[in-house]
Write a protein that binds this DNA or RNA. Structure first.
Length: 275
DNA sequence: GTGCAGGTCAGCT
DNA sequence: AGCTGACCTGCA
């Protein structure tokens, strides 16, 4: 992956494996906005604006080191795509979402975000998360994601007022089950036992656990199965299987590239409905 | 008005 | 273990 790091920006020259629209709209992240031709992204307390130039994408930011890791710029996605291209079912999705990259996201933010994502739509998920940021905008810098300690100071009613609905009680509970440090410490666990730990948390089922494993812990060997993947599976493979069966089949199929395959398939499948 | 959105949980067999 | 229904709420 060809890119260059400056004091206040990164320049990514390989547009075949870096496309901000594909990266941000493929469902892995909620802390972004489209602004005319540009995208802004604001994970944790960081901020970047991505601007397209003729020969590159510029990532304008005060923290280039952070976003170098966030966008996983050191990883060669052409290599990953070569591995995946042998699967017939991925042929079109790889072409369609050619610039997708899996982001390296903060564990706590990913946990909270995907608990909120359950049985919800992206627009409302973003609305709720922005409400949470807004509630702490005086103590934090602009648009920072609140810490576990900050959210711990709030009662269940606070989360209801933020629009979380019935997920308010999950959030209230999960904050009392785990904190940032414990989540970090889980990194040493193997994927299977880590998944069990996560599923024990309030509001975290198999699907949300897999999202946290993939987007937070960077485990490529999981395959989050949601309504879109289910739809795709029933279309392409055998219909009438439950989520766990689908998950087992697909992870066996794609192995350590499961997470990557999932993102391309999800993005492609959802494109038929959008707009 | 109706139905849905990147599911989870409790309660049942 | 495996299955089923209830569930907040903004938006089309």
């Amino acid at each position: 992956m060809i890119y260059k790091k400056f004091e206040n920006k990164l320049e990514v020259y390989d547009k075949s494996q870096f496309n901000p629209e594909h990266i941000l709209e493929c469902g892995q992240v909620f802390c972004y906005e489209k602004q005319e031709d540009d995208y802004v992204v604001f994970p944790e307390d960081k901020f970047a604006k991505i601007v397209e130039q003729e020969n590159c994408y510029q990532i304008l930011t005060e923290t280039p080191d952070y976003f170098e890791n966030y966008f996983d710029l050191k990883t060669d996605y052409n290599q990953i795509k070569r591995e995946l291209s042998s699967f017939e079912i991925l042929k079109k999705p790889l072409k369609y979402g050619y610039g997708i990259r899996i982001l390296k996201q903060n564990l706590f933010e990913t946990l909270i975000s995907f608990i909120i994502s359950a049985n919800n739509n992206i627009k409302r998920i973003k609305l709720i998360l922005n409400n949470l940021r807004k509630a702490f905008e005086n103590e934090n810098k602009r648009k920072s994601f609140p810490s576990c300690a900050q959210l711990l100071s709030k009662d269940e009613q606070f989360f209801k007022m933020a629009g979380c609905g019935y997920r308010a009680s999950y959030l209230y509970k999960v904050l009392r089950q785990i904190d940032e440090k414990t989540l970090e410490n889980y990194q040493i666990l193997d994927t299977k036992s880590l998944r069990e730990k996560l599923i024990n948390l309030a509001g975290v089922g198999p699907k949300v656990a897999d999202c946290i494993l993939l987007f937070g812990y960077g485990r490529g060997d999981v395959f989050p199965v949601d309504t879109w993947i289910k739809q795709m599976y029933n279309q392409f493979y055998q219909p009438l299987e439950n989520r766990e069966q689908i998950r087992n089949f697909l992870t066996a199929q794609f192995g350590k590239f499961s997470g990557f395959a999932q993102q391309y398939l999800f993005y492609y499948q959802r494109s038929f409905i959008k707009k």
